[in-house]
């Protein structure tokens, strides 16, 4: 039995913001992460604020300027199978199709996928770790084979669990957010918070702030996007190492590149070192060899997860080779 909570399902975004601003309130989109967190007792929630009556948060449609707007409540399956997504942003469709299991994709939402709580077993277990307001990160000196190799600063070594966030960040997606101070826009690449800035939260969203839609810019005519996820088994698992690419190509030459990694860091991790290596160059063997080295530049692996560096090298090699091949 879950701990008890009051429940409210408002019909307007304004009422939702008001309810969600209260102390102890938590938003319910698909509920796949929230229900687990409540059952495991890692969140103290007095009030569950359901988004499911908000008609404006559904649907996937093209925008006037040839971009795409996806409702925060679009399910991961809807994103993975939507013809517009598959056609314009294949990397996003790939990322969505790699999430969890079919049932969780049918229930989980794109907005919720961006706002997941970490999957560190100490955080999810009965450890009062740093991220829960305690004194230490247990994974740092403990079991950390699935944990971060970048961006943890040896403070908290979680990896961000989302497969869609790195692709959305690579594609330059922006979030429409409603809140107590009105509406605002946040780029997906600025949504997540590294431990050095604040170890107690995963996103910059404040109390009462609600993602309503995810907007994707018009894809450049020469845009190619992809997402590749390596994991221990083909279902349920989170990424051990993943690479999201959004490349603007001129033949096999890269004009512009955005590269984000999953399974790498406490936030979707931008690999500027790979971007810098491949920009303006043909994706030939020499470039790809340099990208292999670049992807692990400045990595800070822990004793139990150095294997991830080899995974990242292999994934970037395979993904760039595929991108460089003529269609």
């Amino acid at each position: 039995m879950l701990p008890s909570f009051s429940y409210v399902r408002p019909e307007t975004v304004k009422d939702t913001v008001k309810h969600a601003s209260a102390r102890g309130a938590a938003l319910h989109a698909g509920g796949t992460d929230l229900i687990g967190c409540l059952r495991e007792g890692i969140m103290d929630v007095d009030k569950v604020v359901s988004l499911s009556a908000l008609a404006d948060l559904y649907g996937i449609r093209e925008t006037a300027d040839d971009g795409l707007t996806i409702g925060a409540l679009a399910t991961i399956t809807e994103v993975a199978e939507n013809p517009l997504v598959r056609n314009k942003y294949p990397g996003l469709a790939q990322g969505a199709s790699e999430v969890a299991s079919p049932q969780l994709r049918n229930q989980g939402t794109l907005g919720g996928n961006l706002c997941q709580k970490p999957r560190c077993w100490y955080y999810r277990g009965e450890f009062h770790c740093l991220r829960k307001g305690g004194d230490m990160c247990y994974a740092l000196a403990g079991e950390h084979q699935f944990h971060a190799v970048f961006g943890h600063d040896r403070i908290c070594v979680i990896t961000h669990p989302s497969d869609t966030a790195p692709v959305l960040a690579a594609l330059g997606a922006k979030l429409r957010v409603a809140g107590p101070d009105g509406g605002k826009t946040i780029a997906v690449e600025n949504l997540h918070v590294p431990p050095r800035d604040n170890v107690l939260t995963e996103t910059v969203l404040g109390p009462g702030e609600v993602i309503t839609r995810i907007d994707l810019p018009r894809p450049a005519a020469n845009l190619k996007s992809s997402y590749r996820k390596v994991r221990a088994r083909r279902s349920w698992d989170f990424a051990l190492a993943g690479v999201a690419l959004a490349l603007e190509m001129d033949g096999d030459r890269v004009e512009n590149s955005r590269v984000f990694l999953s399974g790498a860091a406490p936030i979707p991790w931008r690999s500027r070192s790979v971007e810098n290596v491949i920009r303006g160059r043909r994706l030939d063997d020499k470039t790809i060899a340099e990208a292999r080295a670049a992807i692990v530049e400045n990595a800070d692996p822990l004793p139990g997860n150095t294997y991830k560096l080899e995974l990242f090298k292999g994934v970037i090699e395979e993904e760039l080779s595929a991108m460089g091949r003529p269609e």
Binding site: S6, Y7, V8, E11, A53
Partner: peptide, 13 residues
């Protein structure tokens, strides 16, 4: 096409 449930308020317990 998209069933949206009605508004709802429930107290705890």
């Amino acid at each position: 096409s998209k069933p949206v449930p009605p508004e709802k308020v429930m107290d705890a317990e």
